[in-house]
């Protein structure tokens, strides 16, 4: 992924969704009204977060077997980038909830579980800060990351289905695709997901390069 084409593609897609998402037509629905446009900005954050956390687990597994410092830096930097997207997802969701459900924090299961899974990764970062020795830190934090990942999957994808939620597609609410993700919205929503995932990956690569340069400087 050293080429630039995907960076250009990601930026073009995100700029396109920002303009088209605010200007193109959307279905008129009660309660949601124009706030439905937030779908283009709120949901892609979670996709980007999941992709970044998956990258992190992949490099954690790799660093356990290879014991290389580079894999460890990759794992931690993708968590750092993923947490930004998780927080953005929480904020955009809270603002959306204010205008549709009435409160910033509506004690919706998905809201709570998303917040808990962000806590999980904050715990991971604190665990890293607690250990001074580099090799040991890489190993122990990789183990915690791999141990926590299945729990995050349970939190985000399995538990909300057992509970009633205000989110579409849960607790008897019809899913988005069934009534309002019509072809006009799809034209913006899918590019938005892809665009934000690419931007997230880009953020991660920049962070990784910065960190490895810093490390190189320290060793010299």
């Amino acid at each position: 992924m050293n080429k630039t084409w995907w960076k250009i593609l990601g930026s073009v897609l995100v700029i396109y969704t920002a303009i088209a998402g605010l200007l193109l037509g959307v279905p008129r629905l009660p309660i949601l009204n124009e706030s439905i446009r937030n779908l283009y900005f709120h949901v892609p954050m979670w996709f980007a977060m999941i992709v970044l956390f998956s990258i992190s687990v992949f490099y954690s597994i790799k660093s356990l077997s290879s014991m290389s410092e580079i894999d460890d830096i990759k794992a931690v930097e993708s968590v750092n980038a993923g947490i930004i997207f998780g927080l953005l997802g929480l904020v955009t969701g809270a603002i959306w909830a204010k205008y549709t459900w009435g409160q910033f924090w509506s004690f919706d299961p998905k809201q709570n579980f998303a917040a808990i899974s962000v806590l999980l990764y904050f715990a991971y970062l604190i665990l890293r800060n607690a250990i001074d020795e580099e090799q040991k830190r890489a190993k122990i934090s990789a183990i915690y990351n791999i141990f926590a990942f299945p729990m995050m999957v349970v939190l985000l994808f399995v538990l909300p289905r057992l509970k009633d939620s205000l989110h579409p597609g849960n607790g008897g609410n019809p899913g988005f695709n069934s009534y309002d993700l019509d072809s006009r919205m799809r034209m913006v929503f899918y590019p938005a997901c892809l665009g934000w995932i690419l931007i997230g990956y880009w953020v991660y690569t920049i962070r990784f390069r910065l960190r490895s340069l810093e490390n190189k400087q320290q060793h010299n």
């Binding site: 579980f113 808990i116 899974s117 806590l119 999980l120 715990a123 604190i126 665990l127 607690a130 250990i131 122990i140 915690y144 141990f147 926590a148 729990m151 349970v154 939190l155 538990l159």
Partner: peptide, 18 residues
């Protein structure tokens, strides 16, 4: 990690909540 009590609570709470 060599850092007993507090770390135990921080690490286990998010995992045990589900």
């Amino acid at each position: 990690a060599g850092n007993g009590g507090m770390l135990m609570a921080i690490l286990s709470f998010p995992i045990i909540i589900p």
